[in-house]
């Protein structure tokens, strides 16, 4: 495929795949008010990168391990009810980011482009990486579709879902694993510092035009893809960093969504 030789085309393809997962996933982040939670996991991803380099394993594995670890630790501390959730998240978020930055700076033998992990660099995505992005995104979407009904039910009312036979613990665990996978791929797109916006902006824009959870999820995926395309093209045209360009494109689309009159309530 000759087109894949074009860096811009590769960037667009990769970005769209990531947005297609981030949109629907972001709906739950919005519905469950877990924006800060997403932030904590994303920041923790830097620690995951360091772990990957340290153990000489794939950084995606490192990121998933760290994200799951943070999620479990949070769940345990939240059960104790000593500190409020947002305080705990604030502590986790920045501690894991700081630890990750220190760990990476200590590794003198590896040359790490920290800037691209923090803010993304989708224009540098290679062919092989693109294939990985598609495999991970497709797998995530399949699993996500499988747990969809249970996850919606658990979001509406946990005990009600439980009473009707939904395995809440399993559904939540899979959800966090999918978020971790998304963070691993989206790090290339917007970097860990901006990932949350990739989750939240499309759903926030989609809300007013949706009357069911399913509609909102699908619409979010399309809005997310539009943001990515607009951001990457802007980045290429004006020679500005791609990650921040995507986020700003998302904000502009969100602002537009507030002006347009929706058909549904």
């Amino acid at each position: 495929m000759l087109l894949l030789d074009d860096f811009l085309f590769r960037a667009l393809l990769g970005g769209i795949a990531i947005a297609a997962v981030a949109g629907p996933l972001g709906c739950f982040v919005v519905w469950q008010r877990m924006a800060y939670f997403g932030d904590s996991l994303a920041h923790g991803a830097i620690l995951g990168v360091a772990l990957g380099f340290f153990l000489n394993i794939d950084i995606t594995v490192g990121i998933i391990v760290i994200c799951l670890f943070i999620a479990l630790l949070l769940a345990m501390l939240q059960r104790q009810n000593r500190l409020s959730s947002d305080t705990l998240l604030g502590i986790f978020s920045h501690t894991s980011l700081a630890l990750g930055l220190i760990a990476i700076s200590l590794m003198q033998d590896v040359r790490v482009d920290l800037f691209s992990y923090l803010f993304g660099d989708i224009l540098a995505v290679g062919k092989e990486e693109l294939i990985w992005i598609y495999l991970i995104s497709a797998g995530s979407l399949l699993v996500f579709a499988y747990i969809w009904r249970g996850l919606v039910a658990a979001t509406v009312h946990e005990e009600l879902a439980y009473a009707e036979g939904i395995n809440i613990g399993l559904v939540k665990l899979i959800f966090i694993a999918i978020i971790a996978l998304l963070i691993a791929t989206a790090m290339r797109l917007t970097g860990v510092l901006l990932i949350t916006s990739l989750l939240i902006l499309p759903s926030a824009a989609a809300r007013r035009f949706s009357s069911s959870p399913e509609q909102m999820a699908i619409l979010s995926a399309f809005i997310g893809a539009a943001e990515v395309v607009a951001g990457i093209l802007a980045s290429n045209t004006w020679d500005i960093p791609s990650g921040p360009a995507i986020v700003v494109a998302g904000s502009v689309i969100f602002a537009l969504s507030l002006i347009i009159k929706p058909k549904v309530n």
Binding site: V30, V152, V156
Partner: peptide, 25 residues
């Protein structure tokens, strides 16, 4: 078991019709 909880706090950010709610699980 049919369960009628005390309160259902659905975020206003989640669009869900009564029809969809009936198909919850």
């Amino acid at each position: 078991i049919g369960y009628v909880p005390q309160r259902v706090n659905i975020s206003p950010l989640m669009p869900i019709t009564v029809k969809r709610f009936m198909s919850l699980t």
